[in-house]
Amino acid sequence: MTASKKAYTAAVLQASIIGLSFLFVKVALAEAGPLDVLAHRFTLSFLAMSLMMLIGHKRLKITWKDIKALLPLALLYPAGFFAFQAFGLFYTSSSEAGIIQASIPVITVILASWFLGETTTLQQKIGILLSASGVAFMFLMKGVSLSQSSLLGGILIFISAIASAGYNVLARKISKRYSLMEMTYVMLSIGFVVFNVLALTQHAFNHSMDTFLVPYGKPAYLLAIVYLGLCSSLVSALLSNYALSILKASQVSVFMHLATVITLFSGVLFLQETLSASDIGGALLILLGVFGTQIPLFKKRESHAQLKQVKKEGVGIR
């Protein structure tokens, strides 16, 4: 299997993990607040990766210089993305948030063009817009109620989208200097510190410090945190960083729309949710857009035409 095929496989697996994670987020949020869930999941992912480093044959040698260089990446994702998303969802609906976050691949294309000099074909641009339109269409058909207080939430969600797009671009650049494990370990370490500080500060203000660890006593919550910490945080970060080390940032980012489709169908399979015509239509737009960004149809047609021309010229020479 070529490196590009491995990268595509990693991107699809990451989208699948993220898509399924929403089921476990629902379970976790039934027992704890958003900041507690984030603190618990990144604590588990940090501990798991630290154990991997201890028992692994190749030890990481991360200096303060390396941490300073990787800090902006970790502050964008997971710290910035999840923090702004969590507070944004407090002021706005998930439907509004879903529509705004559909813009992440579009923002990624713009940032990648500015900072990395990446170029996209007309077909890829159309594919990105199609997939974003599919996400927006599904959420719009579910109904979006705009309110005055949702403006702040929308701004926070948009900042989280910029943070995610910024991560895609910066990870692509940094992956040329740092290894996959170094990038992922620093990201998870910063996530562990940031979300535990935020969660504990919130509990200190609410005088509820004694409740911070209570959810761990619920089997369903523990199962959800294991999935979110090990799969959705640790494995997902490894897959994403690997894909970004090989593929363009714009190519990898559009796979996040695929996670929306997986979330949709996992809800049908595991939560007995129903699919509407708008869901199916939106899913088809997303899939068409994702495939459109990865498969150069027009390039293939052009090459085929050129081959026919070469054969024709060859016959004439003979």
Rank of each mutant, 00 (worst) to 15 (best):
A79I: 00
P78K: 07
S303G: 00
F115E: 03
L156S: 06
K176G: 06
I295A: 01
D66N: 08
S150Y: 06
T211G: 00
S113I: 08
K248H: 11
V135C: 01
K125S: 15
I295N: 05
S232C: 13
V310K: 09
L29T: 08
Y77V: 05
T260S: 14
K6E: 00
L223K: 11
I162M: 13
T211H: 06
G56H: 10
M187T: 11
G267M: 07
K300D: 01
L180R: 14
S250A: 15
A163V: 00
M52K: 15
A32L: 02
A102V: 12
S245D: 02
V235E: 08
A161L: 13
D66H: 13
G19D: 00
A161W: 08
V261H: 01
Y185N: 13
Q202N: 12
S103G: 02
L188A: 11
L284F: 05
L146H: 06
V109Y: 13
I155M: 12
V290H: 10
S150N: 12
E313K: 10
Q101K: 14
Q85W: 04
S103R: 03
L38Y: 15
A243W: 01
G281C: 09
A237I: 11
T121A: 15
K68T: 02
R318P: 00
V169L: 03
L47T: 06
Q294N: 03
A83C: 03
Y242Q: 02
L264W: 03
A237P: 03
G217I: 03
E96L: 14
S175R: 04
L54N: 01
G80T: 09
L35A: 15
N168G: 09
L23C: 12
S103L: 14
L271K: 12
A10S: 09
V290F: 09
F81R: 15
T119F: 11
M1E: 04
I110T: 15
S233A: 04
V226P: 00
A79R: 04
G98I: 10
V197T: 15
G267W: 06
M52E: 10
P296T: 14
F270Y: 10
I225C: 11
S266I: 01
P105A: 05
I110C: 02
E96K: 13
A283M: 01
Q85K: 05
A136Y: 01
A171I: 06
I104R: 00
Q85C: 14
A220R: 08
V12K: 05
I225F: 12
V169Y: 00
L285C: 07
I104Q: 03
H203S: 04
R177Y: 09
S303W: 02
I107W: 04
M52T: 13
S133A: 09
G56M: 05
G143S: 10
F205R: 06
G19N: 04
I286E: 09
A199D: 06
L234I: 09
